[in-house]
Design a protein around this nucleic acid. Sequence first.
DNA 1: TCAAAAGTGTTCCGAATACACCCATGC
DNA 2: GCATGGGTGTATTCGGAACACTTTTGA
Lengths: 243, 243
Amino acid sequence: MGQNNPDRYFLSENNLPFADFLHFGLSVDCVIFGYHSGSLRVLLIQRGAEPFKDSWAIPGDLVYPDEDLNNSANRILTHLTGLKNIYFEQFHAFGSVDRHPVGRVITIGYYSLVRSENYQPVASMWAKNVKWFDIEDLPKLAFDHSEIINKAILNLRKKVRTEPVGFELLPEKFTLLELQGVYEALLSERFDKPNFRKKILSMNVITPLNEVETNVAHRPAKLFNFDKKRYDELKNNEITFEL
Amino acid sequence: MGQNNPDRYFLSENNLPFADFLHFGLSVDCVIFGYHSGSLRVLLIQRGAEPFKDSWAIPGDLVYPDEDLNNSANRILTHLTGLKNIYFEQFHAFGSVDRHPVGRVITIGYYSLVRSENYQPVASMWAKNVKWFDIEDLPKLAFDHSEIINKAILNLRKKVRTEPVGFELLPEKFTLLELQGVYEALLSERFDKPNFRKKILSMNVITPLNEVETNVAHRPAKLFNFDKKRYDELKNNEITFEL
DNA sequence: TCAAAAGTGTTCCGAATACACCCATGC
DNA sequence: GCATGGGTGTATTCGGAACACTTTTGA
């Protein structure tokens, strides 16, 4: 790098030396979705430092110089939740000139789906507070984070219609009505129970277990799990997952 | 900015001053799609400078410090094609540590759809050569541009099933069989002519004109155009465009 | 025995499919 | 007239929507 005049490495027609373009900050922000009793939630942190001190924000961090974007997202998620193998996906880059008060910082937006029962998010040195918020009832957010969440929700809603990501929000073993609840929350749409059941089962990607719910004041529901192997087989045969 | 120790503006737990993170380059790359007689094409440039001199690449440029991402994409497209109001859309950020030989450069990928009859792309100072390539027959590409194109194609294929973007690849006035050709090329799938016709017309977003083809050695086809206003109305009533 | 949710079956309707067929033009 | 693609109609099949009904548990 440096001043060896490598301008026009790109299309650029002004003759700035290459190093003069290395003025951008880069961060990754993660919209973490969870599901709890009928509604979709987002995990937010309360910032412990300026700018936007005390504001609620989605968790994120600057990308390290030797770190790929996905690694960065994974690091943030693991750090915050302590969980490994979380489902996450990049969905959009946000780069408005004035989106960050301190300098030109581009952020790469990821969304992530977690089984929210699995852990308790905890506050730490960089966040005074960590809390789940219903997506229908979000506080005012730092930076352009409202925009980021809105875009994440739109992307997730599209995703969920073509790929079986709903399972990521449930425990390993779940009932069909729980699954229906997840889809209803994701799509803000009600489904007919018998029809939802038939449709899901006809896709052949969830398998019944020899187990049922316990301690419920009604007929206990059979438990199922998602058969990822089977799904991958079907996908290769060009079968789609539409809801 | 500078050395006023504004670390932990983000989650970062190492105590680097903020300015030390401003080490990233940022570029925008545009995958420009066109359609010609049954096949989908991509517009590539042949690089006139190192690195990857003489290699084929997708057009792109470094983002200016005071320029939003979409503006940057628009600038590149207008510059290259001379056309205004081109359809384009951001689809993915590429940021592997080693994707650029000169430094850490993140690129934001856009794809764009153009009516390829409208203009002749021309070579210029930054590109020795500009040429359309069939997507089934691409040359070896600079940087990670093959990966970028592949991802663009996947994204476009998803998009085209839920939003009426196929029209962007055709002239204002088109025949139904031309439209069918576009969709067949986009989805690499054959459609039944009468059924395609019925389905498209039942969506009420294309309107017949009082014009027909001329100088064809068969019954001349009626011309249609896309009714964007009508589409927006329908979209607000939550009607989807599925093919 | 009653409430509550699990789970099944059946009917109806509309949309997608598969095809057969006719029409207009240039040569 | 005939080749070529434009354009229409219909019978069949399949999947989704609506909804009535039975089953199993705890209290």
